[in-house]
Design a protein around this nucleic acid. Structure first.
Length: 581
RNA sequence: GCGCCCGUAGUUCAACGGAUAGAAUGUCAGUCUUCGGAACUGAAGAUGUAGGUUCGAUUCCUGCCGGGCGCACCA
């Protein structure tokens, strides 16, 4: 792999008398070399201008190159560029090393850095009886990718989803349902979508009335109490409505190819949470204030938060204490990653401190992976029908519809496969668009751009994979690479385009590592796009099937690996490839 | 009022304190008698503002301008 080459270069540089850390970077342009060593450090050490130091080092290295061809066969040339010493690798040697590494190691690109460690990834977290909005959609897609990123790095990952099935929003929904009882009864026999639409209406009604009318406010507070007390008056309606919501969420999870190891609910943690906080109050971790129990975050430079309200109900904060305890008793995780929007950053700062004070074993293991916002861009046609806010599942449907429109003209094998393909392409479009931006970065989503067949999009990347597969099929090779020979003759000439592809393929190893370290799927998205582009450039100038035999075999081998690594990358993003499109 | 986050081509996004700030899209100009053209090549086009630290700042610090969010009994 590429590490082998890098180590080779590092050894040469060290031989030249350079001490300390030797870090190799990539020059900004391929014409400037393949690897670079910055000479700011040695310049300072020697008290000379880094440009001068680079020139001296390059000259020194160049002279050893010619002396000992054996050691430095991977390097063709050393050149000083400003304050950098740049290395040009021998393309044939690069080809040999990269093809060998990737062909021999079916797990190339996976890591063991998480070996023996359990990580809880908490994501999605929609609230029963409320809509699954766009924020949830981005969160879900991000969370699944993060989970896969970590699995790829060797961690044992548990996907968990924490949902608010008690609290004021539920009380408001219940009030709405009880004032629309006829519709509720009718909904029992309707589809999941219709049930959920009804729930949306009921919540909206309750929420509006709560603001308008004090008497209704009191009624809703009473519903809240009944939910917490599991009152038999409301039990059936509550459970029924709750199950409708969960069913609806399930359909979304299935569509997007995610699943959870454990669904947590506020209803199962609030009791314990309250108990923990009251214990903490006795120990002086929490304080009484205006009839409520608060965590005095302001004493440690944060802010105060209410954990138990003056009515004696645990707030979200207290419930999180109960949840934390459950997490640790069930999985003893080494890390708990909460994928949650950035509006909760300061909330988590306080809550993690409180949790650590209460349960020392959680100290330093709780992380908030800050999610950026998702907005819709472009024309208003998309912000649905009645000017209402568009929901997550509506957006999925819109993307799928538009992909279908494009695909009608395509002449594909049969109808069932075609539906499947439409589904996969639509998924790719959506996921790619959401995962190409840094996790914490706000983004604007444009349906037209996401399904665009050219440019930085899911369909573009998917298309490259199918085209390679089609090419390989023509040559009678399966795309999984099982037919590849370990021994391959490298042609005497390896082109510039081939070399670029090889360099990129070799980087897969460090890219997956970086993505896992930074918990950022966009690292993978950017990489897979770069590979797709490099392939297209290669494809433009390098014939495969019509090439002379040695070159043909080499190129077939190369593109098999391209498709394999692209598929592996897309797998991490939970994007499924297709055989044709 | 206090605190956190963010201002990069027309637009959507990149850039461990380092080389000429990269892509995509849109615009303009080209390529190829296509191993699936849903392609490729080229051009024009940007760091909100004023200072500071540094050999070097999109990146770190301060002020200002502009935007988002959070600050007690919602989740």
């Amino acid at each position: 792999m590429i590490e082998e080459i890098k180590n080779n270069i590092i050894a040469i540089v060290r031989d030249a008398g350079v001490t300390g850390d030797i870090v190799l970077t990539q020059p900004p342009k391929p014409e400037m070399g393949d690897f670079a060593f910055a000479c700011f450090g040695i310049g300072k050490e020697k008290g000379v201008n880094p440009m001068v130091a680079a020139q001296e080092l390059a000259a020194q290295l160049d002279s050893c190159l010619s002396k000992d061809g054996n050691v430095v066969i991977v390097i063709n040339e050393v050149q000083a560029f400003g304050p950098y010493v740049n290395f040009f690798v021998n393309p044939r040697e690069l080809a040999r090393v990269v093809l060998k590494a990737v062909t021999e190691d079916a797990k190339f690109g996976t890591h063991m850095i998480g070996q023996g460690q359990t990580v809880l990834v908490e994501y999605a977290c929609p609230n029963p009886m409320k809509v699954f909005h766009l924020g949830h959609l981005r969160n879900l897609i991000t969370g699944e990718a993060v989970a896969r990123l970590l699995e790829n790095a060797g961690y044992t990952v548990k996907r968990v989803n924490y949902q608010g099935d008690v609290g004021m929003h539920i009380a408001k929904s219940l009030w709405g349902i009880y004032h629309l009882l006829d519709e509720f009864e009718e909904a029992r026999s309707k589809t999941v979508e219709e049930k959920v639409t009804f729930l949306g209406t009921a919540y909206a009604l309750g929420a509006t009335k709560f603001e308008e009318d004090e008497k209704i406010q009191a009624e809703i507070l009473d519903y809240n109490r009944k939910v917490y007390e599991d009152d038999s008056d409301i039990r059936d309606v509550y459970q029924t409505a709750r199950s409708w919501s969960l069913k609806y969420f399930d359909t979304i999870y299935t569509k997007l190819g995610t699943h959870f190891d454990r669904l947590y609910f506020e209803s199962e943690v609030f009791d314990e949470g309250k108990k923990l906080v009251l214990d903490g109050l006795a120990k002086g971790i929490f304080k009484k204030s205006d009839g409520a129990v608060i965590f005095p975050g302001s004493e440690i430079g944060l802010h105060d938060r209410v954990f138990i309200n003056s009515q004696g109900f645990p707030t979200y904060e207290a419930k999180d204490m109960g949840l934390g305890k459950l997490h640790f008793s069930e999985y003893s995780p080494d890390k708990v990653i909460h994928v949650v929007g950035k509006e909760q950053s300061e909330y988590f700062n306080v809550v993690f401190k409180a949790l650590a004070a209460l349960l020392p074993q959680t100290e330093g293991k709780e992380f908030h992976l800050v999610g950026g916002y998702l907005q819709l861009k472009g024309d208003q046609k998309m912000s649905s029908r009645k000017g209402k806010v568009i929901s997550g599942d509506e957006l999925i449907a819109i993307v799928e519809e538009q992909v279908k429109e494009i695909m009608v003209e395509r002449d594909l094998v049969d109808k069932t496969t075609k539906e499947n393909i439409v589904h996969n392409v639509a998924n790719a479009a959506l996921k790619y668009a959401l995962l190409r931006v840094n996790v914490s970065q706000d983004m604007a989503f444009d349906v037209h751009e996401s399904i665009s067949t050219s440019g930085d999009s899911g369909p573009y990347v998917l298309y490259i994979v199918t085209r390679i597969r089609s090419l390989l099929a023509k040559a009678g090779i399966s795309s999984d690479g099982t037919q590849l020979h370990q021994e391959i003759t490298i042609p005497t000439e390896v082109s510039f385009e081939e070399k670029n592809l090889l360099l990129l393929l070799g980087r897969f190893f460090e890219v997956t590592e970086q993505a896992a370290r930074e918990l950022d799927p966009s690292v993978i998205t950017k990489y897979v796009f770069a590979v797709a582009q490099a392939f297209n450039v290669f494809y433009q100038t390098c014939p495969v099937l019509d090439a002379p035999e040695i070159q043909k075999q080499f190129r077939l081998h190369l593109i098999t690996i391209v498709s394999r690594i692209m598929k592996q990358s897309l797998d991490i993003l939970a994007i499924e490839t297709v055989s044709e499109m």
